[in-house]
Amino acid sequence: MEAKDYIESGILELYVYGLLSESENIEVAEMAKNNSEIENEIISIEKAVIALSSSFSPFHSVANYEKIKARLELKHGKVIEMQPASRWSQYAGWAAAVLLLLGVGYQTLQLNETKQAISSIGTEKNKIEREFAYLNQEKNITEKNLTIVRDVKNTGVTLGGQTVSPKSFAKVYWNKESKTTYIDAAGLPAPPKGMVYQVWALKLSPTLTPTSIGLLSDFEANDQKIFAVDQTVYAEAFGITLEPAGGSISPTMEQLYTLGKV
């Protein structure tokens, strides 16, 4: 194996960390003895490990050490010098500490990423739930409106545009049995601010007699523009006028938008 390949294999780092078997240690030592490039790489790794581990180690100067040693000898007699651990055991301990720190750091990073992913999933789940609730509500409204339109018991009355708004139109769905009345106002423009559409049930003879059956409130908020109004007991025609907010006692004929006979 070429020296470059041997260096890039990572075995020299394990050698410095003291993580190889005895036979592997002998092999690396022989390779270093016969190849200066490998030997220099080992020295470089050792220096890097020492530099990194020393940042975690307490430092005592030689003078402080001698002072402590002298005090211990005065109190307890001669201090027995401890033989320093072998270079390889020191490196192994430092390497283990470095690997432990790296492992803790990696696990912390993974934990944070997992928490962020969970939070993101939770937010997306809430968004989907809100959208589903809204769509379900819209579906229910649509189904109800289709029931109104398709009910054969409902009398459909088309209201055409009048002088103030010739292009306007609307439709009334009136059930003469249950007296329920719905207005499809999709053909009306949005009312100006401070104004509201008011629906009238009209008796035409012997004199014109209008009866208010409700307001088309929250006009712009009603996407499908189908409004339920008061029950209609009797009507020969229906009309819709534009009135001040809150409605009027009698219709403002100059603001008659739509009109149609039953």
Rank of each mutant, 00 (worst) to 15 (best):
P189M: 07
L215N: 08
S165T: 12
L102A: 01
S53N: 05
L52R: 14
A92T: 05
D151E: 08
Y106G: 04
Q231E: 15
K125G: 00
A170I: 06
E129L: 14
A221M: 09
T155E: 12
A190F: 00
S250I: 15
S61T: 15
N112D: 11
K125E: 10
Q231V: 07
G239N: 04
T155F: 03
K78I: 02
E73T: 11
L146A: 08
A29Q: 13
K203S: 06
T163W: 02
K67L: 12
S250V: 15
Q162D: 09
M31T: 11
H76Q: 07
L215V: 09
S86V: 03
I68L: 05
K261C: 02
A48V: 07
I213E: 09
H76E: 07
E138F: 03
N126F: 07
E46L: 05
A201R: 08
E13C: 01
A96L: 11
K125I: 06
L208E: 14
E22Y: 04
K193F: 07
T181E: 11
L101Q: 01
M31I: 13
W174G: 06
K67I: 15
N136I: 02
V164R: 10
T180L: 10
N126V: 09
I80S: 02
K139I: 06
E124S: 13
E236D: 15
I7N: 12
P192H: 06
M31A: 15
V199F: 08
M195Q: 13
V62E: 07
E138N: 08
N222L: 03
L20K: 08
K203I: 10
A185Y: 06
